[in-house]
Nucleic acid binder design. Structure first.
Lengths: 80, 80
DNA sequence: CGTGCTATCTATAACTG
DNA sequence: TCAGTTATAGATAGCAC
C-alpha cells in the first residue's frame, strides 16, 4: 500500500534496508536490461548490497570487463 | 499517454531510440541514486548512448574508479 | 538536444501466507 | 527469509514547444 511516502534518506533499520535493497535492486537491473534492449546500447551496473555482496548487470552478454574497458579507453570528447 | 504498450525489443527508428534513451537513462540514473541513498550502498552505472556518448553514475561521491576497483578486487565468495 | 503535459503503465511499501 | 497481494507513488510514450 506504499504507506510511507518514502523520503530519500537512508533507511535506518537494517532489516528494512535489506528488504528494500533486494526489491529495488531487482527493479534497477530490470530497467537497465530494458534500456539496453530498447535502445541497443551497452550498459553496465555494479551494485554492492548492504552486506557487501555484489550484483551486476552487463548488456548484450558482453563481459563486464569488455564494457569497463570501453569505459576506460573512451576518448574525452565522448565523456560528460 | 503511453499508447504503445512497448514490447521489449529494439526501437527501429533512430530518432525514437535516441529520445527513449534520453528519458529512460535519466530514470535509470535516478533509480540508482535513490537505491544508493536509501540503502547506503555503493553503486556504479556506465551507459553508452546510441551515438556512443557516455553517461555514468557513481554513488556517495566516490570516484567511479574506486567502485570499479572494489569490483575488481572483490573475493569470489561475495560474487554471484 | 531539452522541458512540460497527462493518460496509462510500472514499481514498490506494507502486509500476509 | 521469501513469494504473492494490493493500493499508491513513480515512470514514461506520445505529443507540443
Amino acid at each position: 500500500m506504499n504507506r510511507g511516502k518514502g523520503k530519500l534518506e537512508k533507511i535506518e533499520k537494517l532489516f528494512g534496508r535489506q528488504v528494500t535493497y533486494s526489491k529495488r535492486k531487482n527493479g534497477l537491473m530490470k530497467k537497465a536490461h530494458q534500456l539496453s534492449v530498447l535502445c541497443d546500447v551497452q550498459i553496465a551496473v555494479v551494485s554492492f548490497s548492504p552486506s557487501g555482496r555484489l550484483s551486476q548487470f552487463s548488456s548484450h552478454n558482453k563481459r563486464m570487463e569488455e564494457i569497463l574497458e570501453r569505459y576506460a579507453n573512451l576518448p574525452d570528447y565522448l565523456r560528460d
